[in-house]
Design a protein around this nucleic acid. Structure first.
Ligand SMILES: [Zn+2]
Ligand SMILES: [Zn+2]
Ligand SMILES: [Zn+2]
Ligand SMILES: [Zn+2]
Lengths: 166, 166
DNA sequence: ATGCTTATGTTATATTGTAACACGATATCA
DNA sequence: TGATATCGTGTTACAATATAACATAAGCAT
């Protein structure tokens, strides 16, 4: 979560190998807890998603899985892996991009709050905390029972703002 | 906006004809202002979208347009009308549903904040005001220049909660 | 009328996601 | 050990959503 850190989680020169390792460890632990299996396919998909901090589409994942292999894997296999990972909260779906991105912390209340750069596609998961007051009010005033929160804030990331003229 | 009203905008027995009339008037006025044309196709699409307070898919709109006509209209025509209406802020796209819904007030800062009932598909646009503090903080802390805000809160609407056992 | 611009028609295709059923691996139990 | 139950994957076909590219028509300006 951005708010807990000095620098954005996906700062251009952070130690991304650490992100990957942490994500894989979290996944293994969560699967043990929930008595689920992190199969070879599921792990490969999770690794590919964690290849960057940019949301990645299902068909891109398929293509990556095909590299260096004889047989292409078919869509259902990828979507099953994605569904599995979504179910466990290990990844999020970014609806505005039809794409998937790793979740740093599946243990939290599984909201989906992201900053998304329209220039470089960077997506940073942010702390939903600051929004819960407003959500609560809304729930009270509307009579809605809110079960899922999804917020996608698009714009330009700091890095792109600095490197672009605009 | 819900917060400005006594009852939710889409209360089961509100005067929906008034919603439609208001929407069409707003559209006509906005087109005049912006020197754009509300053509027959565009108006038909807007009317179909305002047929309810539930998001409606592009292909459903196509089907509705086809009713009672000889020729089916092809996808591009519908999508062009949708793009036009989106551009003017007369409708919103609900990304989690791949569907479109009318906007009550295109004049406002054109955020997209919705409560969506997973049971009856009702979608109610809500006032983004209460969220702007948190958004501002996020912007400051992250260095992001946030240009578009999209929030989709899913759950059960009051009506569905009352009529269902759950 | 002539051209200019904008909107629509038309055909084909891209992209994203599922249904349905077959096969194989692994676990459990007799 | 073999029956069998469960789960994950393979395979084929298809559904649903959206766009590219080019042709035609309608409105407007000279
Ligand atoms: Zn990283
Ligand atoms: Zn960027
Ligand atoms: Zn209404
Ligand atoms: Zn409902």
């Amino acid at each position: 979560m951005l708010s807990k850190m000095d620098a954005p989680a996906a700062h251009p020169d952070h130690d991304h190998q650490a992100c990957i390792d942490a994500a894989l460890n979290t996944a293994r632990e969560l699967c043990r807890e929930k008595q689920q299996k992190l199969t070879k396919t599921r792990e490969k998909v999770l690794r590919l998603i964690w290849d960057s901090h940019r949301p990645v589409g299902a068909y891109t994942i398929m293509d990556s899985l095909a590299e260096g292999e004889q047989k292409r894997i078919a869509p259902p296999t990828v979507y099953r892996a994605l569904d599995f990972l979504l179910e466990l909260g290990l990844i999020h779906r970014i609806n505005s991009l039809n794409a998937y991105i790793g979740c740093q912390d599946p243990s939290h209340e599984h909201h989906c709050y992201f900053l998304i750069c329209t220039s470089c596609n960077l997506a940073i998961e942010v702390d939903p905390g600051g929004f819960q007051g407003a959500v609560g009010k809304l729930q009270k005033n509307s009579g809605f029972d809110i079960r899922q929160q999804n917020m996608e804030l698009s714009g330009m990331c700091q890095h792109c703002l600095e490197t672009a003229g605009d």
